[in-house]
């Protein structure tokens, strides 16, 4: 088992975020998941960061466009010749 220090290192946190964003190469991903499976603190950090990403996705207010804007855009198309 690794100590909590590993899971708090800036480099490890960067790796966690890359893993969560699906930005690790396959070999890096394999090594990363092996590492966190051997280190409970690292695994906890991974889940925590993943929940933070989900939290943002769920909590940030989503705005929808008005029907009026869609109509305006469509009516303007006729006056906008494609180049």
């Amino acid at each position: 088992m690794e100590n909590p220090g590993t899971s708090n290192s800036p480099e490890f946190l960067k790796q966690v975020q890359l893993a969560i964003d699906g930005a690790l190469r396959p070999d890096e991903q394999t090594a990363f998941f092996k590492q966190i499976n051997d280190c409970p603190f690292c695994l906890e950090k991974y889940y925590k960061e993943r929940r933070f990403k989900q939290f943002l996705e769920n909590k940030v207010v989503k705005k929808c466009v008005s029907d009026d804007l869609i109509s305006r855009i469509k009516s303007n198309l006729d006056r906008t010749p494609p180049q």
Binding site: K62, K63, C64, V65, L69, I70, I73
Partner: peptide, 8 residues
């Protein structure tokens, strides 16, 4: 189809 995402 992407108009809501763009507006957001």
């Amino acid at each position: 189809p992407h108009i809501n995402a763009l507006y957001n």
